[in-house]
């Protein structure tokens, strides 16, 4: 049994967001973190590993520096890591990205007992599309928004977190699950984990390795092949701090009207 966890390195949006002239994110100038939901996906995989002793493989598509994130996840407990990286893949939208990752997973081989975990969505694009599209392309059953996962024999019992309640469903492996933050608390690293696993080899799958994959159409990957084009990105102006009015209804009404008049709103 092998669990693949798809992860993404994203800009740390708690810091400053920088945008290039062409509207894309200036990733080089921003600090990066591991996408938070993906950390929950990794933790879910590690918990199953603790319970069942399976192999956990983390997979990411990104530029070469994404290697640091993979090393961090190996220090956390993942057994091995795959970096899907190539200039040809750069600028891919969700359609192209899921195609490439699906091709990479197909290349690595998905067995009868295997599971693919993804985070629900990344904090940069916020699309929540890549996980489900990978499942479609690999022809795997998918369960989104997992808030609890239990393995019973060859089925997974998954509690989905929906807007107005929960839905519990069973799914046969192999399957793809997307995870939400309510699922678990990602563990901390141990010094031993870092010392022993940080320098392990990483498998790199580049364009050459994947171009003949049957799931990948080389004309619909990368910036050129992506059907989605970014029209415009911008940093929204910061909202000022709110102010609570206190006192009697009459006082508050007077103060409110004075403020609105001052700002020429009324």
């Amino acid at each position: 049994m092998r669990i693949y966890v798809c992860v993404k390195q994203v800009p740390d949006t708690s810091g400053k967001v920088a945008v290039n002239d062409n509207g894309t994110l200036n990733r080089a100038s921003m600090a990066t973190i591991i996408n938070p939901d993906d950390m929950n996906a990794v933790e879910a995989a590690l918990q199953l590993k603790d319970e069942l002793g399976c192999q956990v493989t983390v997979v990411t598509m990104g530029p070469p520096p994404a290697e640091g994130m993979l090393r961090e996840l190996m220090a956390m407990g993942a057994d091995d890591a795959v970096l899907v990286s190539g200039r040809e893949f750069g600028g891919s939208d969700t359609f192209a990205t899921s195609q490439i990752i699906a091709g990479a997973l197909h290349n690595l081989g998905i067995g009868k007992d295997d599971i693919v975990f993804c985070g629900r969505q990344a904090i940069d694009g916020d699309t929540a599309q890549v996980g489900p599209q990978i499942a479609e392309k690999l022809n795997l059953p998918q369960v989104t928004y997992a808030a609890d996962i239990k393995k019973k024999g060859d089925v997974l019992c998954v509690k989905r977190l929906l807007e107005d309640g929960y839905m519990t469903i069973e799914v046969q492996t192999p399957c793809l699950i997307t995870c939400v933050k309510e699922l678990n608390e990602p563990r901390y690293l141990t010094v031993k984990g870092v010392m022993e696993n940080y320098d392990k080899d990483i498998v790199v799958l580049d364009y050459e390795a994947l171009k003949d994959e049957e799931l990948i159409d080389v004309d619909s990957i990368g910036l050129k092949g992506s059907p989605t084009n970014i029209f415009k990105s911008f940093t929204p102006p910061q909202k000022g701090a709110g102010r609570m009015l206190a006192g009697s209804v009459e006082d508050m009404s007077n103060e409110l009207v004075t403020e609105l008049l001052k700002k020429h709103i009324v």
Partner: peptide, 18 residues
């Protein structure tokens, strides 16, 4: 639980080998 109590104690003696 995270072994911070044994960061610089060798692994063979329950530590983290840091």
């Amino acid at each position: 639980k995270y072994g911070f109590t044994g960061v610089k104690i060798p692994v063979e003696y329950g530590g983290q080998g840091g």
